[in-house]
Write a protein that binds this DNA or RNA. Structure first.
Lengths: 249, 249
DNA sequence: CGGCGTTTTGACAGGCTTCAAGGGCCGTGG
DNA sequence: CCACGGCCCTTGAAGCCTGTCAAAACGCCG
């Protein structure tokens, strides 16, 4: 894995800090995180930068770009577990446990903040507030997966697609990635299918049914929310409200 | 929620500590946990002791008994997210975030160790080692759900059932709940169905197909592993090896 | 013995997967 | 400028898988 070791955004100037959805850091916290961050990594779209079965010495945080976590069965069947957007943490499992049991692949070019696993315990010793944040992030990710599990297990194909799109749109909005209700959407129908536990063909046909409702538009890698209420209706439920006090290491 | 406030097992004598799969505590850690544990709760089988949408002031640890985490849709469709066995932590999401987004119901009579949410931060401040353990537990639970998500999304009905049974059996074995390859199994076919995202009828028919292979026996609430290798074969994969250094608050 | 929760079975419809093939878009190279 | 390949999207057809409906059998307990 190649790191830049060149342009390293100072944490004080991290563009994500300006987001209102993220909590503010105390000066000493910020100082610690700055030292904790050893590097910045650029990866190309399509790169699997964390691999199932491997042991990673690094913990990442997404500075920009999209990724997805996934697992594959021996015969190639793939399941996308969830998506990682800016301000998300990636690779905690590998940092805390023996080895990764999932892989992570970039959907777009990404920049990742790199933290050495070996020093994670320092963080726990010296900054309980940050340690709490890490736990918070882990708990939140579990919530997202819980919701996803509910979708795959119990929602119909149409509901699944509607719910996932609604969910991703809302997360993107929190991150100010939406302009005029439009979003650069780096996901293919194959990704949708693999995330929702459906075949590509059926995903396509169901998506078409959704598109004729005119609740959304999606073409040329651009996603547009036309009627959010209608989409939520099709999903059978709205997404839970955003969480308060969201930390970002 | 009624707590016993009578019999409170001292942590030094906690029966779970004797399990080799759990890490040992330093004396000061043990002392802290002992004070952190404010109560012991007994709940009956069938009790939903944590409810979606509610805010819980308590964090639990399973001392004995089985439970399951679940979510339901408005129209009643239910998805079981995973199962909680002794030494598992329950309610961390409620302790760390605003409110629970899932419910937890007891499958058997249970005893739970009760920890006050309000003092969780003390733990983080004073015992980074324990804070790390909490994160470890959260990360591990996420791993289990990841694996479950893979099952529901990409495994066939037969594989799903085989894999889940294999998984539960292995966890029970780690906890010394198995005697002569037999296990008291508090789960009904309805639970299986709700966990695996299948209908009850189809679960029953598929389970029958599995039973004729003679890999397992399951009757009168007793589960018997007859041919573990054969079951793993039907599951299409074996369960990952148990995690080292497993903590237990 | 009756009631209730659980397991079992059959029938049937339709959701979903698989197979197959064609179309559109775009970057590469002749 | 056009041909070509690769990736993604689209569509149709066939049939299995799975859900739903309905009803009966079973086992446990009061």
């Amino acid at each position: 894995m190649v790191a830049t070791n060149g342009h390293v955004t100072p944490c004080e100037q991290c563009p994500l800090r300006r987001l209102p959805c993220l909590r503010e850091f105390a000066p000493d916290e910020l100082e610690f995180v700055q030292k904790f961050k050893t590097d910045e990594l650029r990866v190309e779209s399509g790169t699997t930068f964390l691999r199932e079965g491997s042991h990673s010495d690094q913990l990442f945080t997404v500075l920009s770009g999209w990724a997805f976590r996934y697992k594959v069965l021996d015969d190639g069947r793939r399941q996308i577990l969830n998506f990682a957007l800016p301000a998300d943490m990636v690779g905690l499992q590998g940092a805390v446990m023996d080895e990764m049991e999932h892989s992570v692949e970039a959907l777009t070019p990404m920049t990742l903040c790199v933290f050495p696993r070996a020093r994670l315990y320092e963080l726990y010793s010296q900054f309980p507030s940050l340690a709490f944040d890490v736990t918070w992030l882990a708990a939140r990710e579990e919530q997202l997966i819980d919701e996803h599990l509910l979708s795959i297990g119990r929602r119909t194909a149409l509901e699944r697609i509607a719910y996932l799109l609604l969910h991703l749109f809302d997360r993107a909005r929190e991150l100010k990635l939406i302009q005029e209700d439009k979003l650069q959407f780096p996901i293919t129908q194959q990704h949708l299918a693999d995330a929702l536990g459906m075949s590509l063909v059926h995903t396509n046909k169901t998506l078409k049914r959704l598109l004729v409702t005119k609740a959304i538009r999606w073409q040329a890698r651009t996603f547009e929310m036309v009627d959010r209420a209608a989409l939520a209706e099709l999903a059978g439920a709205d997404t839970p409200p955003p969480r308060s006090r969201r930390p970002f290491i």
